[in-house]
């Protein structure tokens, strides 16, 4: 059968788009907080104030005539990332890993010229990648250095770690590995591999590509069973701290491990997708129910992480069905 029975999906606690939009996003994410995460410059500023490590900002461009300055800004750097400030879903991100004379090289090895970068920047400023096509700004960040632990699991790109933080508690995590098919991007629907990560240990649980189970990386052939993410506690704490930082109750934190600077946050998302459930082979609903059943939110991210690690570890006993009913089902 190509279709799952809705009854079974519900019994596994899988949350669908409608339930996510209705029961999680519109219930726990107040609209006025969206700009904090939709505008990556604001997020970066907030994170820095909160003492969270973020990639270094090399420069920003706000107006079309700033494009002329691009050459000057880029001059000192060989490696950088150009991003639309209000982009979504990884759109419009240009990664340059090498600069040689007049040529700039993408991770794939393709060479482009300054004029191409200028056009890309100009497109971003015109709002090509922003939500609703509104005029946008451009930010240029330092390139993240691939941590050697991932070198066997990554193809032409930097893997990132998506952690779903619900009311300050990390409830599910996934590692997104770049592949040849995904063109070096950590985007699942473009062909990146999603690896479900055990909240308790940071170890790999299960991996999918294009919605189907894979046992090893399609390009490097390395099996996932040996994969374990280092600095796992630190990553969870960074993610958990984003709740205080933004106030968003249902949040997707995208983190990376930098070879030199360790864990850092690259992006926050107020509408995190649901593929993480496929990568984990588990539904979000039971975990959401556990957090919703709590009387109070612990103000200390450290304590919350400890709670999550014991509750949502793969080793922990499965949750009683009583808890499967989430408030997402309840009307407001």
């Amino acid at each position: 059968m190509f279709l799952a029975s809705p009854k079974k999906l519900r019994s596994f606690g899988i949350i669908g788009m409608n339930q996510r939009n209705f029961g999680l996003i519109s219930r726990y994410n107040p609209r006025h907080l969206y700009p904090l995460v939709d505008d990556k410059l604001k997020t970066k500023l907030l994170a820095q104030q909160a003492g969270i490590t973020v990639p270094k900002l090399l420069g920003t461009l706000h107006y079309q005539h700033d494009v002329k300055l691009l050459k000057e800004i880029l001059h000192p750097y060989d490696q950088f990332v150009i991003k639309p400030v209000k982009g979504s879903g990884g759109k419009g991100i240009l990664v340059i890993t090498q600069h040689d004379h007049n040529l700039y090289f993408k991770p794939s090895g393709d060479a482009i010229q300054l004029a191409d970068i200028e056009r890309h920047v100009s497109n971003i400023l015109s709002g090509l990648h922003s939500l609703g096509g509104k005029p946008d700004s451009v930010m240029i960040e330092s390139l993240i250095q691939l941590d050697p632990v991932f070198s066997d699991y990554s193809y032409e790109g930097i893997p990132d770690i998506r952690i779903i933080v619900f009311r300050g508690y990390p409830i599910m995590a996934m590692l997104r590995l770049t592949t040849h098919a995904s063109d070096g991007k950590a985007n699942l629907h473009q062909g990146a591999v999603g690896v479900g990560i055990d909240i308790g240990t940071g170890g790999a649980l299960h991996a999918v590509q294009f919605g189907e189970t894979v046992l090893h990386h399609p390009d490097t052939r390395k099996t996932f069973s040996e994969l374990a993410i280092p600095h796992w506690d630190k990553l969870l704490q960074l993610a958990a701290a984003c709740y205080e930082m933004t106030g968003l109750g249902y949040l997707g934190a995208d983190l990376v491990l930098d070879r030199d600077q360790g864990p850092m946050i690259i992006e926050l998302n107020a509408r995190p997708g649901l593929s993480i459930q496929v990568a984990n082979y588990a539904g979000l609903a039971p975990r959401v129910a556990v957090i919703e059943a709590l009387k109070a939110i612990d103000p200390n991210p450290q304590t919350r992480v400890t709670f999550s690690k014991t509750q949502f570890s793969a080793a922990a006993k499965p949750h009683t069905p009583r808890l499967q009913h989430t408030r997402c089902d309840d009307p407001r």
Partner: peptide, 22 residues
């Protein structure tokens, strides 16, 4: 607007989950 059930496309999207869980 208050329907929080699954979309038809999601039954396909999550169909691999059913197999695994069974």
């Amino acid at each position: 607007g208050q329907y929080t059930g699954y979309r038809l496309s999601e039954l396909y999207r999550f169909h691999s989950l059913e197999r695994r869980n069974v």
